[in-house]
Nucleic acid binder design. Structure first.
Lengths: 241, 241
DNA sequence: ATTATTTTGTCGCCCATACGACATAAACAA
DNA sequence: TTGTTTATGTCGTATGGGCGACAAAATAAT
């Protein structure tokens, strides 16, 4: 299990892995756009006309149940590609993409993107790699959801966030996204109140802190923070047995 | 939601969509193998050396929690490709693949397969399409799991199975896989007993029947069977509100 | 056919979590 | 600043469904 937490960052980051000529070419077939915080980039039911690459900011990809329950599938950061899954068939979207901050992005027509991939097999391989990685992550989420309780799920989520998005500032490791309890609940499939209280326990019993919706820990590196939490999650799993 | 149930079969079936020359070429870079019923084709932790295409029979792809809980991600039928998600990075598997019947399959070395895709962009596009489809399915499962109760999840599962694998025999529509209650439980994330009793209710109150582990309904076509169940699932969702 | 193994059907208990309800606090707007 | 909105913290209650237990039935093995 532990190994699954360690997907290399590059697996999800498209832009970073590109040569500058590739990057230029991507820019040339797409157009740069800016969306303000909280705006929907696309919504379920909409036609799938574009794929997107984030230049700056964060967006969340989620589904919405008929009863209005959000299920957040992932957060996208700069360099990441999204909106790909439905675009091939050209069917309508079945997820929502919403900006969590002001976002700059490249928007590429699906047919052009497809053509681009046809002409550049290496790039197509990158895309396959990205999709594979997401598949593994969703599989992991599925496993988590069905076989761990809320505490374990939350701890694992935090471990993953620290690992992927943790950054150091005056001796503390921060998760660089302001997350509400509701959003965390939507990521691990439970209700907001449960997140509030579970987080409360973690704050009281382990060194978790928060400041203006940013979670942090006292640790030397995000690796250490993530590992501390991962160990904790293993302990939890074992104590349950 | 209803629309999401209707992924065209082709989206998952690789072989069917190939020209005979492509098929021949695939065969030439791989080797044909046979595994007996219940044998593991690969297991979590194993190195990812091959991708597989089923010629005959069925296999299930699942994860296993440390506590031994199975989470079935999908069943693969003839023509379908599997074992792809981890193969790119060459990391170890994190899922299990197990034959549900005697299975004939093509086994292709990962590097060769990659080279093949590099040389044949159209094929790479097909693979992207397949991965995208699976991503949507997993997303759908995730949504289901967090926002529907067991009855709704089971009904939806049956609808999907009837739709994709339903076949007609003397006026009845059968799901052509012998499924145990445990397996269904593993597909919808609940325990075996709950499947048994929920299935019991469906059998008593709606025209569901079973014979030697094969579920069937009296209906004109698998479409009709699937639609009946889909409507039922919608009714259930609304009555809950 | 006979035995062994796996699956199904059914109960009852119990507990993790959902959900409603509010009070408080923080963030945002004007 | 002051009001307005949105997020957090904390109850108490209700319940879906997990889990153990065991008998009956169905499959598989010898």
């Amino acid at each position: 299990m532990a190994a699954q937490e360690q997907y290399p960052l590059t697996s999800t980051n498209l832009l970073q892995s590109l040569s500058s000529t590739d990057r230029a070419q991507l820019l040339s077939i797409g157009s740069v756009d800016r969306v303000e915080k909280n705006a929907l980039i696309f919504h379920a039911g909409a036609p799938s006309e574009y794929v997107y690459i984030i230049l700056n900011g964060q967006a969340k990809i989620y589904e919405l149940s008929p009863q209005g329950k959000e299920v957040i599938m992932w957060f996208c950061f700069s360099g990441e590609l999204f909106g790909l899954a439905e675009v091939w068939r050209g069917t309508h979207r079945d997820v929502y993409a919403q900006a969590c901050s002001a976002v700059d992005l490249i928007k590429i027509n699906r047919k052009r993107f497809r053509q681009y991939l046809m002409d550049d097999p290496a790039m197509a391989m990158r895309v396959i790699d990205i999709l594979s990685g997401r598949l593994r992550i969703l599989g992991d989420m599925l496993l988590n959801l069905t076989s761990n309780d809320v505490t374990a799920r939350l701890v694992k989520l935090l471990a993953r966030l620290f690992q992927r998005y943790g950054s150091s500032r005056d001796g503390r490791i921060y998760i660089n996204i302001p997350l509400t309890h509701q959003e965390m609940a939507d990521m691990i499939g439970c209700c907001r109140q449960t997140v509030t209280s579970t987080l409360g326990v973690l704050k009281r019993t382990h060194g978790l802190r928060s400041d203006r919706r940013m979670l942090y820990m006292e640790a030397e590196s995000s690796q250490v923070a993530a590992e501390t939490l991962t160990k904790l999650s293993i302990d939890l799993a074992e104590s349950t047995i």
